[in-house]
Structures are given as C-alpha cells and as structure tokens.
C-alpha cells in the first residue's frame, strides 16, 4: 500500500481502525486492568512503547531476514520471540536505569508479552504489506488507540463503581463489554475519514 502516507496510517490506527474497538485485540488485559485510571495509564504507556518498537523490529526481521531466506512460514514463532525478548530486555534496562520508571511500568511489562494486540499489529502489518514508515505509524497509532480506549474505559468504570448498581450477572466483564460496545459505536462516527482496507 504505497499510496497512503504514514501519518494517515497513524491517524486511521487511532480512530477509524482502532485495534481494540474494531479488531478486538488486547481484550484480556483490557477487561482486567481497566478498573483504575492510574494503572490503565501505566499499561497504556507501556503498550505504546513496546508496540512501536516491535513493529519496527519485526518489519526489519521479516523483510530483511525471513523473506530472503524464504522462511516466511516461521513468522509466528519469530515475531513472538522478538516481542518476548524485547520486553525482557526493556524490563532489565528500566530496572537498572530508573527505579521510579520501573515502579510505574515494570509490573505491566510481563503482561504485554501475551497481549494479542502487540502480535496482532505485526501480523496485520505483514498482511497489508506496509512500508517501513507506514509500519512505524501503524505501530505507534495502534498503541495510542489502545491506550486511548483503555483510559476512557477506566474513567467510565471508576465512576460506575462508585455510583451505580449493576445487575448481578453483568458485574465485571459483562458491563465492561457493553461499555466497549457503546464506545465502538461512538468510534464508528470516524468511519470514512481514512480508508485502510
């Protein structure tokens, strides 16, 4: 897809093709962690950083290593190993460099390896045949979109917890899914601004 600018891809990944609200990726941690704004912000920040970096690394690995060697079918294993290794490395570096940053981000990093949004971004990037810059925009935009969704959800859930009575069967996951559905409806209002497919 050479005709779309990287900035348009970034914009689309945040609003029209939000990774969480239109592709349902990263739901597990989204449902569990979105109880408080503070922890959501921490996880959101970690996701933005890891998603941008791994989409760039995976692009280089896929196009400069796997394709020349004709090992495309190994991409699932290679991508997940790159993500896990990167997360481990970042955790170690942060622990050495900054104690406060580790306290804020450190506990979220292991969660990220199994966050399907990170792997999903790399797989979409390969399927849609993005260039390097587009992939970078896609990774950054995907991260920002995910962080935006979880922050909005945490804000809503904090208010909900203190003020309203929820039917027993809907407590927890049920009500969160209904709110996510309503948010997805709202995000559909952005449709047509940029077309990715």
């Amino acid at each position: 897809m050479p005709e779309i600018s990287a900035f348009a891809v970034l914009f689309a990944a945040v609003f029209t093709n939000n990774i969480l609200l239109t592709n349902y990726l990263g739901m597990c941690s989204f449902l569990v962690v979105s109880r408080e704004v503070k922890t959501s912000a921490g996880l959101g920040g970690a996701v933005i950083f890891v998603m941008t970096a791994t989409s760039a690394i995976n692009w280089i690995v896929y196009y400069k290593l796997l394709i020349p060697l004709q090992l495309e079918y190994l991409r699932f294993i290679v991508f997940i190993v790159v993500i896990a290794a990167f997360v481990q490395l970042v955790e170690m570096i942060i622990e050495r460099v900054s104690e406060t940053l580790y306290a804020a981000l450190g506990i979220f990093l292991p969660l990220i390896t199994v966050n399907c949004a990170i792997l999903g971004i790399s797989l979409f990037m390969v399927i849609r045949e993005y260039s390097f810059l587009q992939s970078l925009g896609f990774g950054l935009g995907g991260g920002i979109g995910w962080a935006l969704a979880i922050l909005a959800m945490a804000g809503i859930r904090q208010r909900l917890a203190s003020r309203s009575r929820i039917p027993r069967g809907l407590e927890g996951a049920g009500i969160t899914l209904i709110i996510a559905g309503t948010m997805a409806l709202a995000f559909m209002g952005f449709n047509g601004m940029v077309n990715l497919q």
Binding site: L170, I175, I178, A180, G181, A184
Partner: peptide, 15 residues
Amino acid sequence: MAPGAFFMLALFIWI
C-alpha cells in the same frame, strides 16, 4: 459489525 459482537457476548455472559 464491531459493536454487535460486544453486545452479543455481554448478553450471553449476562444470561
């Protein structure tokens, strides 16, 4: 579309 999936699963869990 996307919202329908969220509502349907929520309904299923509720029931």
